[in-house]
Computed example of a mutant assay.
Amino acid sequence: MISMISAHDLNRVIGKDGEMPWHLPDDLKYFQKTTSGHSILMGRKTFESMNGPLKNRKNIVLTRNSDWSHEGAIVVSELEDGLKLLNEADEGFVIGGGEIYKMALAKADRLYITLIHEKFDGDTYFPDYSDDEWELISNVKGEKNEKNPYTYEYRIYERT
């Protein structure tokens, strides 16, 4: 099963200048818990924005740069090759960035979306997904507090 996991605001903003425009520690914990033990596919820029490969996951990096490599990462040059590696397990996750999400959405079976009820300035977006193609199967409100200052919810969609 190919899943995608992302947080986005009300306008589907996911990033600005290579970073997330918000800080939600509980969402980062949710991401870690949800993807741990699974394969994850990301673009090179997303990989480079992290401090190395994510632990307890098979890190697959999609890049056009045939000379690029990194210890702890499996490098692929075609989306289909990365998706094939994700499909080897029971569930694999596409984790970004914007271009990778856009290319992979048509192949995804499930979406894990943290919807942040705010509007942020951004330059990177999650692709549009509609109720015609996706059914909301779970919706859990996140806890707004000192460390997590926004209203947000964890949504899971399955392709209809």
Rank of each mutant, 00 (worst) to 15 (best):
I14D: 03
V13A: 02
F93Q: 00
Q32P: 15
E146R: 03
D128R: 08
L105N: 01
I60P: 01
D128L: 12
S77K: 01
P149W: 02
G37N: 04
A7E: 04
I116S: 08
L41D: 01
K33T: 12
I137P: 05
N59V: 09
A89I: 09
T35V: 13
T114P: 03
K84P: 11
A106M: 15
L10S: 09
E143C: 05
G37A: 10
D90L: 12
E153R: 00
L28A: 09
E80R: 05
L86G: 06
G72W: 15
L111P: 02
N145G: 08
G72L: 13
G96D: 04
S3I: 15
K119M: 15
V94G: 01
D131A: 14
L85S: 13
T151P: 10
E158M: 12
R44P: 01
D9Q: 00
P149Y: 02
I40V: 11
H70T: 14
D67M: 11
N56Y: 07
K102R: 05
S39P: 14
D132N: 12
R110L: 15
A7N: 06
G72T: 09
T35P: 04
L115Y: 01
E146C: 13
D81V: 08
L85Q: 07
E118C: 06
D26Q: 10
N51H: 03
E19F: 15
P53S: 13
S6G: 08
G82K: 00
Q32S: 14
G82C: 04
A89H: 13
F31L: 14
L85P: 09
S36V: 07
L105H: 01
D121K: 04
A7T: 04
W22N: 11
L79F: 09
K119S: 15
L54V: 13
T46K: 03
L83F: 06
I137N: 00
D27T: 04
S138T: 05
S69V: 06
M1R: 02
I137W: 02
L79W: 12
E80N: 09
P21I: 15
K33S: 14
L136P: 03
G72R: 06
R12Q: 04
A108L: 02
I5M: 10
T46P: 13
A104N: 03
P149H: 05
D81Q: 08
E143G: 03
P127L: 07
